[in-house]
């Protein structure tokens, strides 16, 4: 009995400790949500708002809002929604193309035995350790140069940025190849006996069987591309072409005290979809990450 009581106390203590830690950890999140609905919403505002308002949300959604200084109805001149749309567009195209590029390569590495396979694997393994941001100067100069001949992939274009991201296939090839290895070859082999071509066997049999890893790789690429700051900040210049990360950084850095409320609302808008995706697939991500490094 005594022992049980002790355990109860201990359990309670544990709960209290975890809750205390959670309160500290989640404070910024809760605070930023509260700020986004706070009528004053200036930096350093109290945690529980005295007066609620939707002005900050109207501001970032490009609707008419009441300017707190002049009291007039107006529309924000920052294209925050465009930035968000740019980010989503770039991330989506990147993840789709990334899947196309890495599944085909992964299939070859997993199924064929040929000269140079070992060394291909070795090269992939080594190169995926080097994050591409180390070559940022090279990317910038290369796109500058390419843009003179092919304007669609120069600096300050989304096409150029996407191409730069597509260089980062090795990690994904590695992940997908690992999954392909677990699918028995016999299924494809019998299909090929029945007159299927290699390529048909690949996209009609192997791809549908590996939907889980494709989803994880696609979503991971989406999240990582969406969260990237350094490459778009180097490669993009025009305000309307910026990604959310770069745009919002410029937006808030110009005036921390004046745009805090709007910034809070924008953060929630940008973080919510990514957060949701992440929390849904975090189990797979961890098993993927433990295979090859950490979030990059």
């Amino acid at each position: 009995m005594n022992n049980n009581f002790k355990k109860e106390i201990e359990n309670l203590a544990k709960h209290l400790l975890i809750i205390a830690i959670l309160m500290i950890i989640l404070f910024p999140v809760v605070y930023i949500i509260s700020i986004s609905f706070n009528a004053t919403g200036s930096i350093g505002s109290e945690i529980i708002p005295k007066k609620l308002s939707l002005e900050h949300w109207k501001y970032i959604l490009g609707m008419k809002y009441i300017n707190s200084f002049s009291g007039q109805l107006q529309v924000s001149n920052f294209p925050i929604l465009t930035w968000l749309f740019n980010s989503i567009k770039i991330s989506l195209i990147t993840s789709i193309l990334m899947l196309v590029l890495s599944t085909t390569s992964a299939y070859a590495l997993s199924r064929f035995r040929y000269k140079g396979r070992q060394s291909s694997l070795m090269i992939l393994m080594v190169v995926q350790m080097f994050p591409n941001i180390m070559a940022m100067v090279a990317f910038y100069l290369m796109l500058n140069f390419l843009g003179r001949y092919i304007p669609a992939i120069g600096t300050d274009t989304h096409g150029g940025l996407i191409l730069v991201y597509l260089g980062g296939t090795p990690f994904n090839i590695w992940l997908i190849k690992g999954y392909f290895d677990t699918i028995p070859k016999s299924i494809e082999e019998s299909a090929i006996m029945d007159g299927c071509s290699r390529f048909q066997a690949f996209y009609k049999i192997v791809l549908p069987l590996s939907t889980p890893i494709l989803a994880v790789v696609g979503l991971l690429t989406f999240i990582n591309t969406f969260s990237d700051f350094i490459l778009p900040s180097i490669l993009l210049k025009t305000q309307d072409k910026l990604t959310f990360a770069v745009g919002i950084q410029i937006f808030i850095s110009e005036s921390f005290s004046g745009r805090w409320g709007q910034f809070a609302a924008a953060c929630i808008l940008g973080a919510f979809p990514i957060s949701t995706i992440f929390l849904c697939i975090h189990k797979y991500i961890v098993s993927g990450l433990t295979m090859g490094g950490s979030k990059g």
Binding site: L101, N132, A135, F139, M142, L163, L166, T169, P170
Partner: peptide, 10 residues
């Protein structure tokens, strides 16, 4: 793409 946007930049 790996060659153009990884190896060459390096």
């Amino acid at each position: 793409t790996f060659f153009l946007f990884m190896i060459i930049p390096i």
